[in-house]
Design a protein around this nucleic acid. Structure first.
Length: 277
DNA sequence: TAGAGCCTGCGG
DNA sequence: CCGCAGGCTCTA
């Protein structure tokens, strides 16, 4: 469900809500999360129990909570994950897999019906070299993500579609299915175009489109297409800005042609066959 | 570099 | 009942 803009919105919310707060207790559902990996309750307790939240940051689609224990919590929301600060007295939602009780009678809850997300604890010193972060490409809003870096990365591929390239977190980290379609539309590039055949001019347009689409989505506090909500339970506003995502059959906002859908890597792609070549 | 698989829930 | 869903990992 959440891509970079949604995770960034949650990170900003949690920064305001959590920094300086103390974790009193840790409770887990015991159900395995991503790839059947159980939440390590012991490690979580070492990391969080009695510790203070010092910093909240984001890397790609990961949230990073730096704790006073010299541990970090590394959270991925998968498809259906939610993180929210709620009154401890409120009933825990179905599929609450991790619950950190805080001061002031509140809880930080990780709710994830499909369990594609993950909630991990790492010693802070081991975070950069973790399996999760060490393989990630540049954050598309980071200074290291330049048009020429994108071009070089495109040229290093071996014939994959540009859509698949954008979803590959080792190439660029943070883009998901919504913003891949939206960025390709804005750049006028067909989703089936070969990544390694894009020239410098088209790579530069794609680079600009990616940054534009993501920055706008962050400014709008994310896209709430179905059930994404921020850390306070509020919906985002960016769904009004989407040009092609889930608009099969509707007129292209630029040329009026019917928008189409195709499947790549088992995921839907939405595009305008006339504007995108 | 594609495809299957992992899970639950929703809407047609 | 079916297909689909904003992600990722393992396999061949």
């Amino acid at each position: 469900m959440p891509e970079l803009p949604e995770v960034e919105t949650i990170a900003r919310d949690l920064r305001r809500l959590l920094v300086g707060r103390h974790v009193r207790n840790v409770a887990i559902s015991g159900k395995p999360l991503r790839m059947c990996r159980p939440v390590d309750g012991g490690e979580l307790e070492r990391a969080a129990k009695g510790a203070r939240v010092e910093q909240v940051t984001r890397r790609a689609k990961y949230l990073i909570l730096r704790m006073s224990s010299e541990y970090v919590l590394l959270v991925h929301l998968g498809m259906s994950g939610r993180l929210a600060v709620e009154p401890a007295a409120s009933p825990r939602p179905r599929h609450t897999h991790v619950s950190l009780s805080l001061d002031r009678e509140e809880e930080l809850r990780f709710v994830d019906p499909r369990r594609f997300g993950s909630f991990l604890a790492y010693p802070a010193s081991a975070l950069e070299d973790s399996d999760e972060l060490s393989v990630l490409g540049p954050d598309p809003l980071d200074a290291s993500f330049t048009a020429s870096a994108l071009l070089a990365s495109l040229r290093a591929t071996h014939g994959c579609d540009i859509k698949a390239f954008l979803l590959d977190q080792r190439r660029v980290a943070g883009i998901g299915n919504i913003y891949a379609s939206e960025a390709l539309f804005l750049a006028g590039i067909h989703p089936r175009a070969r990544a390694n055949r894009l020239g410098a001019a088209r790579a530069a347009r794609l680079h600009e489109a990616i940054q534009k689409v993501l920055a706008a989505a962050i400014a709008n506090r994310g896209t709430s297409f179905r059930d994404y909500v921020d850390a306070a339970g509020e919906r985002g506003d960016n769904q009004r800005q989407l040009q092609v995502f889930q608009r099969t059959g509707q007129p292209c906002p630029v040329c009026g042609n019917r928008l189409k859908r195709l499947t790549q890597q088992g995921r839907s792609t939405f595009y305008c066959p006339r504007c995108q070549r």
